[in-house]
């Protein structure tokens, strides 16, 4: 008798510490799935002075970029080589002309929030994603549009994103206030406050 093993925890150089590989795409949510049609969706970006709002067509006007990347959930699963399409957050920031304030608070339809540092949104691959593996992003995965910040644990990639506030002072979001790490780098295993 082998006894309880849990899920197989495979070894792969691309896997951050403490993660296992999954082939499916688990649905994680802290609340009801928001079901929004593209027509209902809007994203507002503001630094308190300059404000811009993008609807579905307004977002698509910038053209969609393809990104193939690994994603890591703090609940220990990782998925390698996922392909997304969307618009870079930095493009939208440039269009609105926001100031380089040091922090961002991201809000979703349904009230979920998460906080990030500005550089995590503009210096790496962060995008507003609308397609996953060649298909429109499903509601349960955050469609019609979610934030994707693939170099951080996935709770930072807010589903059903509705608003990005650039701010001078850092404010913890939903999971950050509940004890999760403020930054959430999977390769540094920044899971919890104090890690």
């Amino acid at each position: 008798m082998a006894g309880f093993q849990g899920r197989p925890r495979a070894r792969d150089d691309r896997l951050p510490p403490g993660q296992y590989l999954t082939r499916d795409f688990p649905v994680l949510t802290a609340g009801p799935t928001e079901v929004l049609s593209p027509d209902e969706w809007q994203l507002t970006i503001t630094d308190g002075t300059s404000t811009g709002t993008f609807d579905w067509d307004g977002l698509h006007a910038f053209g969609l970029e393809t990104l193939t990347t690994d994603i890591h959930c703090v609940t220990h699963w990782s998925k390698l080589g996922t392909t997304w399409r969307g618009v870079r957050v930095s493009t939208l920031f440039d269009v609105v002309g926001v100031d380089d304030l040091p922090y961002a608070l991201v809000t979703s339809y349904g009230g979920y929030t998460t906080n990030l540092q500005l550089e995590d949104l503009v210096e790496r691959d962060a995008m507003i994603a609308v397609e996953f593996e060649g298909e429109p992003l499903e509601s349960e995965h955050g469609g019609p549009a979610r934030l994707l910040v693939p170099h951080l644990y996935l709770w930072k990639s807010a589903k059903w994103v509705s608003r990005i506030d650039l701010v001078e002072e850092d404010t913890p979001g939903f999971w950050e206030a509940a004890g999760y790490h403020n930054h959430g780098d999977p390769f540094l295993e920044q899971r919890y406050h104090g890690d």
Binding site: P26, V27, L28, T29, A30, G31, P32, C73, V74, T75, G111, W155, F174, W175, A177, A178, G179, Y180, Y192, H193
Partner: peptide, 29 residues
């Protein structure tokens, strides 16, 4: 809601978040 990084208790009337419980190194926050 348990399929998330913690346990989220929501009001059965309005759906608002009431309690969030996160287990950190065998301690509950």
């Amino acid at each position: 809601y348990l399929r998330c990084p913690g346990m989220v208790l929501r009001c059965p009337e309005c759906g608002g978040v009431e309690v969030v419980i996160v287990e950190i190194d065998h301690r509950l926050n």
